[in-house]
């Protein structure tokens, strides 16, 4: 180390700090794909549209005065094509704060997501 020029040490040190910071940024970019994957898989796996569509189908069924066979259609086709165990019951109208509404209980289970609801429609 004799006769070595020791000027500019701070510049060298700051250069190293910048290099370390760049590595951390690279690490964050490296992780971003993984984060996007878990988010996308979570959205794909959660049957948001299925449940909303099932609810609207059941409400349409109530609107059309409970025709024969439609309940069996929904339950059978859900199991066959959507891999979802679905059951629902529509009870007699009752007085809910002055309005006469059907209590509708909905059960949905596709093995990943379980959804149960009692709604007055």
């Amino acid at each position: 180390m004799a006769c070595m020029n020791e000027e500019g040490q701070w510049i060298v040190l700051m250069g190293l700090l910048v290099a370390v910071a760049l590595f951390f940024l690279a690490l964050i970019i490296n992780q971003s794909a993984l984060v996007g994957q878990t988010t996308a898989e979570g959205v794909l796996e959660f049957p948001k549209n299925d449940i909303r569509d099932l609810r609207s189908a059941i409400f349409d069924y109530v609107d059309t005065e409970l025709p024969d066979g439609v309940k069996e259609d929904i339950i059978a086709i859900s199991l066959e094509r959507k891999n979802a165990v679905v059951n629902f019951t529509v009870n007699q109208k009752m007085d809910v704060s002055g309005r006469w509404l059907h209590p509708v209980t909905i059960h949905y289970n596709n093995g990943v997501t379980v959804y149960n609801e009692t709604v007055y429609y």
Binding site: A33, L34, G36, Q37, T39, A40, E41, V43, L44, N49
Partner: peptide, 16 residues
Amino acid sequence: VYTTGDTHIPDMQLEQ
């Protein structure tokens, strides 16, 4: 190497 196809992000967007 992770490509966008592996991450299912386009699948999610397409399904929505």
